[in-house]
Design a protein around this nucleic acid. Structure first.
Lengths: 114, 114
DNA sequence: GTTATCTGTTACAAAAAGGATAGTACTTAC
DNA sequence: GTAAGTACTATCCTTTTTGTAACAGATAAC
């Protein structure tokens, strides 16, 4: 695990690129993070994440395409749609947790004067 | 840890955004991954990572600014520069490992027919 | 019928990111 | 002095990403 040969790093790079292709960018991980507190409607997501409808629509489609989010249309008065994390999205938990922890620690490090 | 309240998710989102600000984008994590196999020169990095000098220069400056990479000028015949991971970059190990694992598993899942 | 809510889409614009190519400055080898 | 290697930088351009604003279709409330 702590070996970093040239070949093992080539594999690592490929894997990282793959991951970035799926959840890279400004919004994917944020949206998943938001959805962790439960299923949400479209406008709800837009407000909570601070993302414009246009981008949100695109991001959700990509997340759904990659099996990370499910979209359920509810037969309510004004048709509502519920977005929800899939079980498969749980495989990203380690990534999300690691990034959350690092972000918090780094922020502390900066605040405490580098 | 498995609680995902609205407030805890707000914190999580902030932390994730912080992390993305530092190591987001197409190259940062790739470069760190490459440097895990040892210190590298500028052209060496450019070749191994497949990144153009202009972008490489910019990315390295940002990584150095954030204390993740150190730049050492060597007093050799043609002046060479060695880029190396700092100890602090080790705090990203969990993030990198998690992303590597996820990328590999996801690739397998896709190859094996989704 | 006007207004409001919900889920989006469309058209347009701006900004950020990334890439290609060439060139600079220095040194060493031939 | 010519070529080649080091480490970049400058310029220009394309692509990608993100954002803003408006609008559409459907239903309900007033």
């Amino acid at each position: 695990m702590s070996e970093h040969t040239i070949e093992s790093c080539a594999k690592a790079r490929l894997a990282i690129r793959d991951t970035l292709d799926i959840v890279g960018g400004k919004w994917k991980l944020i949206l998943i993070s938001v959805l962790r507190s439960g299923k949400k409607g479209f406008n709800e997501l837009s407000r909570e994440a601070g993302i414009s409808p246009r981008i949100l629509s695109k991001e959700l489609q990509e997340l759904e395409l990659n099996g990370l989010v499910s979209r359920n249309v509810c037969d309510t008065k004004p048709v509502t749609v519920q977005y929800e994390l899939t079980p498969y999205s749980g495989t990203l938990d380690e990534v999300l947790n690691a990034m959350e922890q690092w972000g918090q620690r780094h922020r502390n490090k900066i605040i405490l004067g580098d």
